[in-house]
Design a protein around this nucleic acid. Structure first.
Lengths: 271, 271
DNA sequence: ATTCCGAATGTTGTATTCAGAATTCAAACT
DNA sequence: AGTTTGAATTCTGAATACAACATTCGGAAT
């Protein structure tokens, strides 16, 4: 791969973190690949120092793990682990959807605003499906669920769930490609949003739960081969005129964030 | 504070991480304290390098945050945030308790083993309450809930919840000290365990939920003063013949862990 | 006296160097 | 031939060095 120079301001550590996790997510760095600091440093045109720090973060996430006595490897993608993470995410999503519904029930203004924001996300989501752009579909899926987390009014839900998204992202592309057209996903999103805006917590929870169980089942059905996979993908994708559209790219929150900005939310007391 | 020398094998980064988070948890480093790498490095007798990396990890946890243009500060302890984290934890604990109950219902052997392990934890927990040892009580409380996470059979729950424990630990001491004797906490633990072993998921979930709501309410009632607090504590505690008993200390999992050891769990497919 | 400019200082991010440990390779020995 | 020892190499963690930038302090100009 060509040497690309990173630039400062988002610190080199953050850039290295993002660059590496992206390469892992889309298979350019296959599971069980040995990661050598020097090699990565050279690839990104920086010293070993920021790479080492980025790897430390990745290791604390569990995205990479130490290999035997020396060095790190890309964590193998373990289907059981993915199911476990889907299950945790389901619980968190249900919590968020329920809270969001309650918030909408409590305040018409919030309901109104939630409706507007949600519908905008739905719109671009449907567009991505229509266009058949896999990466964009993933990005907008992330965006929809992040929207639900935020709509809950509990700012701790999003970062808690994001850890799992970092993993799930590794298999979502595969699943979307193999399974039937994902228009149903966005129909479910539409229904979830409707329940939230209508202020019906039970319905919102139930719908988002079945939505995620659906996704998990789809994963199980299309389980990528145990250890390494997703190789042709990268080559095949290179052809596709490299994402000019800025949201045609999967964006998670930057690794570093402050837990709650001043006045991030008014949040009523928890029942 | 005296210069204490850290030793290698648990890497200096990990040791620094633990040392700093401990000082934050028990108030030796008050909220909003400015953290200067050089100072910490000197205090622990290491170079800036491991300190910088430990701070990076702490920052990614949200335990410290950047202060304006330069430097880091200990995150102020925000009561709203604590409530939000309790809420997330409640959901995760309920998930774990429900799953654990289902597992017990499915297999008498597992139920038996869960019962034995759980009762042992209860025993030492009650002892700690009887002895009135605050730090030990916190440690055993952590141990009980970690036990429930593990009993769920979903190994992703524990690390997800542990993030929140790292914060909650900062206020638990305060709350335990101020509120009525925490014997009721351990009675609740006993009841939760009973429901799990009996294989009753609904009851287990309901009980652990009310247990945590209870704890959150206790926190709200004894909210430490907005920004800085817990100072006499450290001085007063110094007298108490520094924890000879190894579990007389709050132990969370080390920051670095592998997500799922080989054969960590057999875990049946999620419904 | 107050304000503005600039030098001195402090602090961080990044690079480079150093030391120790693990792996590899090869030659020597059985 | 197979095994074993040991030296060269590779790689990581930690220390030190360096450069950019922000803050502070002091003096000069108004």
């Amino acid at each position: 791969m060509a040497v690309m120079h990173l630039q400062s301001h988002p610190s080199l550590v953050e850039q290295a973190y993002d660059a590496i996790i992206d390469e892992i997510a889309d298979g350019a760095l296959a599971p069980s690949t040995h990661l050598v600091q020097e090699v990565l440093a050279e690839r990104y045109g920086v010293s070993r120092q920021p790479i080492q720090q980025a790897l430390l973060l990745l290791k604390s996430d569990g995205i990479v793990q130490d290999a035997g006595r020396r060095g790190l490897v890309v964590a193998p993608l373990d289907m059981q682990m993915m199911r476990d993470r889907y299950q945790v995410r389901a619980t968190l999503d249900a919590l968020a959807a329920g809270l969001a519904a309650r918030r909408c029930a409590a305040s018409p203004e919030i309901a109104q605003q939630t409706k507007r924001q949600g519908e905008h996300i739905l719109e671009v989501g449907f567009d991505a499906v229509a266009a058949g752009a896999i990466k964009a579909m993933i990005a907008h899926d992330v965006a929809f669920h992040a929207f639900v987390y935020d709509a809950s009014g509990n700012p701790m839900i999003r970062p808690t769930a994001e850890i799992h998204w970092r993993f799930l992202r590794r298999v979502m592309g595969e699943v979307l490609r193999k399974s039937e057209p994902p228009i149903s996903i966005w129909q479910q999103h539409r229904d979830i949003l409707a329940a939230i805006v209508a202020g019906d917590p039970n319905k919102a929870e139930a719908r988002i739960l079945s939505h995620i169980q659906n996704a998990a089942a789809r994963l199980a059905a299309n389980a990528p081969t145990g250890d390494d996979n997703a190789h042709e993908k990268h080559g095949a994708q290179k052809g596709r005129t490299e994402a000019a559209d800025p949201d045609d790219d999967v964006r998670l929150a930057p690794r570093m964030r402050r837990p709650a900005g001043p006045g991030a939310q008014a949040g009523g007391g928890w029942p």
